[in-house]
Design a protein around this nucleic acid. Sequence first.
DNA 1: CGCAGTCTAGCAC
DNA 2: GTGCTAGACTGCG
Length: 101
Amino acid sequence: MSFDEKCYQLLQRVPKGRVTTYKELAEAVGIRAYRAVGQAMNRNPRLIKVPCHRVVCKNGEIGGYALGVKKKIELLQSEGVEIKGDRVVGMDGILYRFSSQ
DNA sequence: CGCAGTCTAGCAC
DNA sequence: GTGCTAGACTGCG
């Protein structure tokens, strides 16, 4: 399985209404290059299958999105995630940790 | 706020 | 095929 495939698989593990960080995702994949994860997300070859919008910065900021940060916010809000400005509200509570499993 | 660390993909030679 | 650059980040000074 390729690096990107692992990222997508783990990302799909994140339940609706929850979010994760590039760091957590990278750690789950087995690397420490959070940026590489973002790269795979940005390429987004499986946008329909991979909820890249559930990946946010550690500080709660949206970070970025292939279709635009605004779109990402709307998608997250549609899933029940509260967004204030360009940051996730209470992201510390909805943050999904792969380590929990 | 700015620099460095770490990984993958893409372009150039 | 190998080398360099850039990028949806994070942490420390």
